[in-house]
């Protein structure tokens, strides 16, 4: 691990954090801790410069609106379909879901999951919990749930990485982290802790995207003017 700025030649994936609204600075800080110099993505053209995008925590209605307002949806979909890595945390998970339990907002469908917003209740019901996560070695992760959503249903090929166990009041277990291909979604906020393990896992996904030759040619076709 080193702190040098990322460079495609040197072999580090280029990672962006969507910076339209939410706690993007916290994600950038976490990536910095593991030697990745991430960029703030505010314009759709910047998607051409990255191997992986994090959609941070924030207000999902706001982020969905801003994605449409600033014409991100089609290009983001094309990039993810061509193999760019993507991770949505909390609001980010809501944004990329196939569908929501509420009628509002309309998510942009980048991973085949149904999501229920504010599942655990209002802010006074927010909580922290220890989570075991598939693919994360060692101690459980301390997960911060803030007005958090859960994954209600998953389509073919979506792997559940973590669950919140059933509760004494009869609430059944809930999926709170899922993955399909290079798309990751989590209900909680690792960026509010000091634990960088899930960020490292995402960097590995972005690195896969970087070295994926089929994706590189696709991206080149899309953006012939980019050198």
């Amino acid at each position: 691990m080193n702190g040098n700025a990322s460079s495609p030649v040197q072999g580090q994936p280029r990672i962006g954090v969507l910076a339209l609204q939410g706690d993007f600075a916290e994600h950038i800080h976490m990536l910095d801790l593991i030697g990745i110099n991430a960029i703030e993505v505010r314009k759709v053209q910047q998607l051409n410069e990255i191997d992986g995008l994090i959609i941070p925590g924030g207000e999902s209605t706001t982020i969905v609106k801003l994605l449409h307002m600033f014409d991100f949806v089609d290009d983001l979909t094309a990039h993810v379909e061509s193999g760019m890595a993507l991770w949505g945390t909390c609001a980010g998970m809501i944004v990329i879901a196939r569908e929501l339990a509420d009628p509002y907002p309309t998510p942009i469908n980048l991973i085949d999951i149904g999501v229920a917003r504010n599942f655990f209740g209002r802010q006074v019901d927010s909580f922290e919990a220890e989570l075991n996560i598939t693919g994360i070695e060692g101690d459980p992760m301390r997960a911060v749930f803030i007005r958090a959503p859960i994954v209600q249903d998953t389509g073919d090929g979506v792997e559940t990485l973590a669950i919140v166990p059933a509760k004494a009041d009869g609430t059944p277990e809930q999926a709170v982290a899922v993955k399909k291909g290079r798309v990751l979604a989590s209900s909680f906020h690792p960026e509010l802790t000091e634990d960088t393990r899930l960020h490292s896992l995402f960097v590995d996904l972005a690195n896969e995207a970087r070295t994926d030759s089929s994706r590189v040619s696709h991206t080149t076709e899309e953006t012939p003017s980019t050198v």
Partner: peptide, 11 residues
């Protein structure tokens, strides 16, 4: 979790 909600409101 209290301060965290404010972090989600940023921007």
């Amino acid at each position: 979790v209290k301060g965290g909600l404010a972090q989600m409101l940023k921007g």
